[in-house]
Design a protein around this nucleic acid. Structure first.
Ligand code: FES
Ligand code: FES
Lengths: 144, 144
DNA sequence: ATTAAATAGGATAAAATTGTCCTATTTATA
DNA sequence: TATAAATAGGACAATTTTATCCTATTTAAT
């Protein structure tokens, strides 16, 4: 469904959001540990998220990653997926034709666009804040 | 969503089904041409489909691939996807956790399982015969 | 029998994705 | 000012996926 990079991106952003709500900035090292991801690879993903203004990075000692309270509410999973995996999830053909096109549809087009729309809808309506709910209480998890 | 191999598998099976309904067997070369896929790679995919009894292969001159009328009705996309991509589509976690598990869910679990169920449902209820409807008349396409 | 056309399958190669390592830069603090 | 801790980013390595090439085998038809 999503690339590994994108899975890490969502999990990392969620963890950063959680800690930002608690008022603390988090280091790459801590993030990778808490979401169980390879450190250096996660660094690349975070760089991309930073460039896309999805997370804020602070350099230097005591630096780290954070997300503003406003952005925690405003940023949706759809933006993260788009930043890392591009628009294939939203516009790609289920059977791999170059362009999904209702005018010359593949045999699964009608059924596929519905599922894709549901997925898109879910991603567009799930904020980072939504993602953090239940995390602190251990009702949901970012590792294992 | 699906691997390239799986996309080719679905398109190839659909084309073979179409021609089998017309009573003719088709060669690898013709298949690759009609679904716009790399010949040798498609051969590997067809080998796998043959091993999984999704398509029948006939060796030798005048040989080729075909699917029995019964199987055209009975074989569902779900079987093809499973044969090529395994069960990740059906059982994998949306955020890449090792196991999707309702007892220790990731933050998107509840929403994700629904979408996954819809997809699974669609794949389990779409037969190769369904896939061929509209193809002959050009209402749907396997290339472009 | 020979030939030609087809699939089967092993060995590689190319490309994309995933992952690692090292150095540069930034910045708080001692 | 020196140091230590942090991100940024370039270069590279490993793995997986995708694609190609070549040979063996099968089989219909001449
Ligand atoms: S053309 Fe294939 S999903 Fe739209
Ligand atoms: S645990 Fe992530 S989708 Fe079920």
């Amino acid at each position: 469904m999503f690339s590994k990079a994108c899975e890490y991106a969502i999990r990392a952003s969620t963890y950063i959001a959680l800690k930002s709500l608690e008022g603390t900035r988090v280091s790459l090292k801590e993030i990778a540990e808490k979401i169980d991801s390879p450190v250096a690879f996660t660094a690349k993903v975070l760089q991309q998220l930073s460039k896309n203004n999805i997370v804020d990075s602070v350099k230097g000692a005591t630096g780290g990653f954070q997300i503003s309270t406003q952005n925690i509410s405003n940023i949706k999973l759809a933006q993260i997926v788009y930043a890392i995996d591009g628009n294939n999830v939203y516009e790609g053909c289920g059977l791999g034709l170059k362009k999904c096109n209702a005018n010359e549809p593949c045999p699964v087009h009608d059924k596929f666009v519905q599922i894709r729309a549901d997925l898109k809808n879910m991603l567009e309506n799930t904020s980072l804040y939504d993602m953090t709910i239940g995390l602190e209480e251990g009702l949901t998890s970012l590792r294992r």
